[in-house]
Design a protein around this nucleic acid. Structure first.
Length: 504
RNA sequence: GGGUUGUUAGCUCAGCUGGUAGAGCAGCGGACUCUUAAUCCGUAGGUCGACAGUUCGAAUCUGUCACAGCCCA
């Protein structure tokens, strides 16, 4: 790939509307400072509504409340000798009233030529219109930033999905729903951070560039460090670094940050996405499931006010205890009497069944892997209410601690909601020799052609050899959690700037 | 990667079985001192995603490509 696709020249999409606004800007430049930065904004629309909406018209006007407010002009209604405008700031909208009487004819005439989308500052006093709407009677008005491009249509807003994602600022300007989604995202992350900090967790940052990609089964992005002449990988997971910190004595750690996986795009996948991973020493996977339920409930309550979530026509109840089922229990529960225990324990039967369904199976799959594949084909998408699937086969869980009674399975869970995996956790494998054997098995799989199999990480083994206390850990896909709590159908609706193809 | 739908004015959308482009908003000019997507009158604005093909004639039919949405892997 060359750099010829990169845009180094301005977009050539001038039109008559933009030309007219450029002409207005050029007149502003002639008159003085075209982009003044000396307006002292003192008030926010939302605060003014909160403080004064309930007051009676007469009482409010007797108070003569002086305000200084600024924002983007979203609506404009000119009526000869007086005008109304609606401006929008980060907290909301408020109406301005500009008249020849108070603001003066010169100011009002100038205002008439301003455009929707312009950013203006206004000083004046609050009053209520005859319909009772809180409004600023403007005495001074200043154009702070000329907008050269017309906004999307004022009533329908931006409906073009592509433009919504490529030019996110337009959606943020015109869609309250979009603003609310990203404010909810911030609140969700803040709540989770507080939840863990309150419980004695330490927030840390570990490398985004890894010499060995590890901690998950996925294809990495590759990059190169020139000075060290060294191949590096954008991380696919922070797991192995966070557990090194537990070895170091940070017994409760978490990190909220980006992971990168070089895979396809879909309504559930973006190449960079946000995960929280957290680790706590002297706990096991059952404790982690309890903690997860509590965290999800608390987060939903913080964002929505309650723990019953509406998602795309489903009612998801986070208030009740989450189901906890093994893979075969889940298959039985959602397909009663479809399979016998003998069949689910019969490799030949499972392979034949998967063949019928066209499922992708690896020839090396053991019984556990085949059961998992059958679960994914038949049951996963039916797990609408929050459900922990527990006790995953060791062959697909190379970093999880084995069950003491049955080493073929691990103390691991995945949480499913609305048929989607949203979290993954386990009792950590802290036996360095077992971990070394598991890495070796992964390397054999990689050599057999599995591009997503893990590498052998000798430094991580060395860390385990110093002693990782018994620990439980978990990762939660933040984007998918935000989708759930904001009723968003696509991951692109909850990532401010989702990955897109280059524009032509 | 496969299937499917879409791409027309700055924005939101019409445009019939093929006859050469329309509305609303935004803009510009005018009227209007309590509007709420203000209203009313006038006016300007387009390589119909790109390239081929069929045809006397293509926004419309066919093919390829680009981008996007949805479904599937």
């Amino acid at each position: 790939m060359t750099n010829e696709n990169q845009q180094t020249t301005p977009l050539q999409d001038e039109n008559q509307l933009i030309a007219e606004r450029r002409e207005k800007l050029s007149k502003l430049r002639e008159q003085g400072v075209a982009f003044p930065n000396d307006f002292d904004r003192k008030d926010m629309a939302g605060d003014l509504h909160a403080t004064h909406d309930a007051k009676e018209k007469e009482a409010l006007e007797a108070d003569k409340v002086e305000v200084a407010i600024a924002g983007r002009m979203m609506l404009k209604r000119v009526m000869g000798k007086a005008s109304f405008a609606t401006i929008q700031d980060m907290s909301g909208r408020i109406q301005l009233y500009i008249s020849n009487d108070i603001a003066g004819m010169e100011t009002h005439d100038a205002f008439k030529h301003w455009d929707m989308g312009d950013i203006i500052g206004a000083r004046g006093t609050l009053f209520k219109t005859k319909t009772g709407e809180l409004t600023v009677q403007v005495s001074e008005l200043k154009l702070l930033t000329k907008s050269l491009r017309p906004l999307p249509e004022k009533f329908h807003g931006l409906t073009d999905q592509e433009q919504k994602y490529r030019q996110r600022y337009l959606g943020l300007i015109t869609s309250e729903e979009t603003r609310n989604t990203f404010m909810a995202r911030s609140k969700i992350i803040q709540t989770i951070r507080d939840f863990l900090v309150e419980r004695g967790y330490l927030e840390v940052e570990t490398p985004m560039m890894h010499p060995i990609p590890g901690g998950a089964s996925a294809k990495p992005f590759t990059t190169h460090h020139n000075a060290l002449d060294m191949e590096l990988f954008l991380r696919i997971a922070p797991e192995l670094y966070l557990k090194r910190l537990v070895v170091g004595g940070f017994e409760k750690v978490f990190e909220i940050n980006r992971n990168f996986r070089n895979e396809g795009l879909s309504t559930r996948h973006n190449p960079e996405f946000t995960m929280i991973e957290f680790y706590e020493a002297y706990r096991d996977y059952r404790y982690m499931m309890d903690l997860t339920e509590e965290m999800f409930r608390e987060t939903a309550k913080a964002v929505l006010g309650h723990a019953v979530v509406q998602y795309q026509g489903h009612t998801i109840n986070l208030a009740q205890p989450f189901d906890r089922l093994t893979i075969t229990q889940a298959i039985h529960k959602y397909h009663p009497k479809r399979y016998s225990d003998e069949q689910l324990g019969d490799r030949v039967f499972l392979k034949a069944e998967l063949e019928k369904m066209g499922g992708n199976q690896h020839p090396t799959d053991g019984i556990g892997g085949l059961q998992l594949a059958l679960f994914e084909e038949t049951t996963e998408q039916l797990l609408i209410q929050p459900t922990f699937i527990i006790d995953y086969p060791a062959e697909v869980s190379p970093l999880a601690r084995s069950n003491d009674a049955n080493p073929g399975i691990t103390e691991r869970f995945e949480l499913f909601i609305v048929g989607r995996e949203i979290a993954n956790g386990f009792s950590e494998l802290n036996d360095p020799e077992d971990q070394s054997d598991r890495f070796m098995a992964q390397v054999r799989q990689k050599e057999a052609g599995d591009a997503e199999a893990m590498h052998y990480d000798a430094d991580y083994i060395r860390a385990l050899e110093f002693g990782l206390p018994p620990t439980a850990g978990e990762g939660i896909g933040i984007d998918r959690l935000v989708m759930l709590l904001t009723d968003s159908p696509s991951i692109r609706d909850v990532i401010l700037f989702p990955q897109m193809r280059l524009e032509d």
